[in-house]
Design a protein around this nucleic acid. Structure first.
Lengths: 356, 356
DNA sequence: TAAATCGAGTGAACCGGTTCATAATTCGCT
DNA sequence: AGCGAATTATGAACCGGTTCACTCGATTTA
């Protein structure tokens, strides 16, 4: 605790007496009913006679009753909370997924509690523990690390839905995206355009879907009868953000000058684009660029970005529905989503350039 | 504790019984200490002899103790939660503000609970009530409506910080952004370029800072000795998103063809840009476009967007610090942030075109 | 008319981690 | 060894909304 160094703390006026919030008992007294009735008004209004209910509601209003979820939750063992653990809500892709989940759950008087892991396993762990302690009724998690510590959620009312696969042991239900396939499409596109010197800016290999996207890239290169070591330059960034994409591309360009850059997501690609522009390079004439996710703004970039489209909102909706249906709780339902390549103007024929 | 996946968990008792999570009492029994000691290990580890503490921690680990924040919070009257109410976390601007708040609070073992209002007063109200019931210790709110219902938070441990001004009655501390000034700079820029037919796509007039930005626009026009009614075309969108910006611009263009469009934020401007491109219009040769916020991607748009820069991350940091310093609790501290115009390539001289 | 049924309301017990007055140890020092 | 002070440990009471077995009066059924 940080104490202020105020001139004279000796005021001694006990006005700091924060009057405690009013509770059900006070409301009950004022409305001339028992505390149980107040509880009924809150939870099962239909079981209370309208006249009585009105009296209680009036009392609640007059007293400014708010109620403590903690107290209720303690006894009822329901929190009305659903935890959502995502890599980064600042990424429009995940923000969209979140909107999808929200759209399904908001009528069910469930409140979303959201946390970003920022590709940091320690943060994922902390978030999961925090959510467990909050007593969330259900969990939607996009693991950026093999999912440990999810057990406390298995017994919860709604269970667990894992987005992206490769999470680890059977984790409730999962919605998998075919990352291998998506990445393969992207790399195949570049190869078909004649690119033979391609940089791949990827996230940490501790993240399951980064591993998968890499796999897809390697697969695609081999499938074209080429040697990965001769074609691919791999770069790893800790954080899949535009800032990191920018610096990574700056650094990369000092060493290699590939004819194409593929990024693990659109934010990184945005950073790469900014970097290339600052170097005075034209896209796609000098360098082709390809992203992943198809977030909203890439269509308006200069040039519009070729990318791999994944349905974001829809994935969120699926996750929400899985929770509600109980599929996440007992049986483990699996769902597979297939991404598709969206070719725009940021990719073009490979320029002639000697391999460095 | 990691459970082995052995073929036969010999206990085999009525396992369908969702066994309740272990509590302090069970840990205490196992560690041969009193329940008070377990609580001390959790909250004030230094007050427990290392040997005892180790025993308790071992027991917690073996039993998979998680703990219930609800129970603790009930007695201690501390939730360790800070509520953050923003218009839209999907907007990179607000995501950045959030990151700022987070960066200050995450070491203080405070957990952020975030909600988006989407310019909907009803949602704001719901969120505030929910946060009050969760017993958040502090609140950061960017009101999209005169702030009612914040009183329950005033007495909380950390208090209230309001972002953007015009909230209403004295609400803890506030961080105001000079929206009038920012908008005035933007419109002055357009007028200086010769534009005399300008559309302004703004958010709902129930949102305080939309009102202010409008005021700045009107001011700026009048300051140039022009009649607002002759220069300005006002458009209102319910939601400050790219989707709404796109449709609003589509609709607008069917009726008027202004030489410049100013948007209440960059997301709307992005939507407008997409719409203009689809109409085959060149920016800025046919239409100038100006946004607000300077979110990360606008620099990479085609063309790079002229906009009004507001420090986002920094505002979040300020808000976080205000909460911690206690300024948000008692004295109401005021802070004013001044935005600045960033001229890029989306604005240019007004083309010759007859006023429609 | 008496008995069974039902809707409404009651309030003591309860959820489980924290508090705090009290008790038990340990430690420093003579 | 003896004694007071400091450190550590104890556990009953508590936070406040929910639960549920129970009461009460009214309506329906026999």
């Amino acid at each position: 605790m940080i104490l202020a160094v105020g001139p004279d703390p000796s005021d001694a006026t006990k006005d700091s007496e924060v009057r405690r919030p009013v509770g059900v008992r006070e409301v009950a007294k004022r409305a001339q009913v028992s505390l149980g009735t107040v509880s009924n008004v809150i939870n099962t209004p239909d079981s209370v006679r309208p006249k009585t209910r009105a009296r209680v509601e009036k009392a609640m209003r007059e007293l400014g009753f708010v109620g403590s979820r903690a107290a209720g939750q303690l006894r009822s063992r329901k929190s009305g909370l659903v935890g959502v653990v995502l890599p980064d809500v600042g990424n429009p892709y995940w923000a969209d997924v979140l909107r999808g989940v929200e759209s399904v759950l908001e009528d069910q008087d469930l409140t979303l509690v959201v946390g970003s892991t920022r590709q940091d396993p320690a943060r994922q762990k902390r978030l999961l523990r925090a959510f467990a302690q909050q007593g969330v009724d259900g969990l939607v998690v996009a693991p950026i690390d093999t999912l440990r510590g999810w057990e406390p959620f298995a017994g919860r009312r709604l269970g667990v839905v894992a987005l992206e696969n490769g999470a680890g042991p059977d984790v409730g239900s999962t919605i998998s995206l075919d990352n291998v396939g998506g990445a393969r499409q992207a790399i195949a596109h570049l190869l078909a355009l004649g690119h033979r010197s391609i940089a791949f800016i990827n996230g940490p290999q501790s993240v399951p879907w980064c591993v998968e996207r890499r796999e897809g890239v390697l697969d695609g290169i081999r499938a074209a009868g080429l040697k990965t070591s001769e074609v691919l330059i791999e770069v790893e960034v800790a954080d899949l953000t535009s800032a990191k994409g920018l610096t990574a591309t700056d650094d990369l360009w000092g060493i290699y000058q590939p004819t194409a850059i593929m990024c693990a997501n659109d934010l990184v690609a945005l950073g790469a684009l900014l970097s290339l522009q600052r170097h005075g390079l034209r896209v796609p004439e000098d360098v082709s660029l390809i992203g992943y996710d198809d977030v909203v703004f890439v269509e308006a970039l200069r040039p519009p970005l070729t990318t791999v489209r994944q349905p974001s909102f829809e994935v969120g909706v699926m996750a929400g529905k899985m929770l509600l249906s109980g599929a996440a709780h007992d049986g483990s339902e699996r769902e597979l989503v297939t991404p598709s390549l969206v070719v725009r103007e940021s990719t073009g024929p490979a320029p002639l350039r000697k391999r460095t």
